[in-house]
Write a protein that binds this DNA or RNA. Structure first.
Lengths: 199, 199
DNA sequence: TTAATATGTGAATATTGATTCACATGAGGC
DNA sequence: GCCTCATGTGAATCAATATTCACATATTAA
């Protein structure tokens, strides 16, 4: 084992990152304290210097994901101010994020992590609801500016927006990569787009 | 414990049913051989008279779900021959099925069950792909009959169809029932409907 | 009625994984 | 350079869980 010692902040990040990657590779069942530690290059018991227990580790993985989701939304909002274009870019960024990290999908939508942990479930729910709220806000903005049909319910549409990606992502995963998410999203977007757009 | 003895066919069904309900109540982590047996009213070791091991039990739970999904599609096809109406009815039937049995969502889309079991993952993929194919066929039919826009890709649209329900179902689950799936689907359907419909 | 067999029981086993703890040691402040 | 403390180690413990097996008993067919 490497006998280097790092301060807790850095190690915590390493552990969270390692855990997320591990879930991508082997699923949640493969996520043991031992496997995470091995991936970081340390011994299982070392983890307890930085996390009270395994649950605390999982919480920090969720924080990691939370950060990435919102970073995506931030970037997109900086790239353009056109609402419909923002949505398109966010869609593509989301696809990229999920493709590059299977673990995200598995962790966010796994009941294993939530069942018996109401606080964590609530935390994830807040995270997803927050993301959807940002999408809904973009849509509202588009309505105010007259590019999007006014009779559409932004909250409803934001969930439909998620519906462009999510089932596709799950199929991609389930089919072990055979199902082409990117292609699906590229074909689905114009259809959704023309439902939103004010002619 | 009840000392009644039942033939293997009946017991197998009882176990599968019990397992599915248990997942709905406590998530996949709560699905132990012991808990399933207790729910059936037997002792853990008794399960091995009917299943080679726990995996065989899980396989039979998947068969159970498979049956229910297709039963839904069959019913709907018997109720009407109008393609767009078939889709609407199937959507509602699907919502009902999922609401009445949280376990389905958890089992079908849980990586826990699939990781390390390529055969089972393939089996579930076949099941979902088969269901989507039926949806795609309804759409093709609608195109042939002239009710649905001909330039829509049925396979693509069938995944979008799934996208009307699936994220909503997951949000419903994640929010512990706060998110209203039925309401979402009722609002999302007309939007999807008008994307498909030939004016 | 009885013999044969399928089904159920309870105890034992083996494995896996989280967690604890006494001890070791590297890094940073003095 | 030395001291102290945070960090890392290795072994031990504890709990959960799947699985096996010898034994018991209900069901069924003859």
């Amino acid at each position: 084992m490497a006998l280097e010692k790092l301060n807790s902040g850095i190690r915590q990040d390493q552990y969270a990152e390692a855990a997320l990657n591990l879930v991508a590779l082997e699923g949640l069942k493969g996520l043991s304290v031992a496997s995470v530690a091995r991936r970081v290059g340390l011994v299982p018991s070392a983890l307890y210097r930085h996390f009270r227990n395994k649950d605390a580790l999982l919480d920090s993985v969720i924080d990691l994901i939370h950060g990435r989701l919102h970073a995506n939304a931030d970037t997109v909002c900086r790239q353009t101010s056109d609402p419909l274009e923002r949505l398109r870019l966010l869609l593509m960024a989301h696809v990229r994020l999920i493709r590059e990290n299977k673990g995200i999908l598995r962790i966010v939508f796994s009941d294993e992590l939530h069942n018996g942990f109401p606080e964590r479930k609530a935390q994830v729910w807040q995270m997803v609801a927050g993301y959807l709220k940002r999408v809904a806000d973009i849509i509202s903005q588009g309505q105010k500016e007259g590019q999007i049909q006014p009779d559409i319910d932004p909250d409803n549409a934001s969930v439909m927006f998620l519906g462009l990606i999510q089932p596709a992502a799950i199929l991609w995963n389930l089919s072990s990569g055979k199902f082409d998410v990117t292609r699906h999203v590229q074909k689905a977007w114009p259809i959704f787009y023309s439902s939103l757009k004010k002619e």
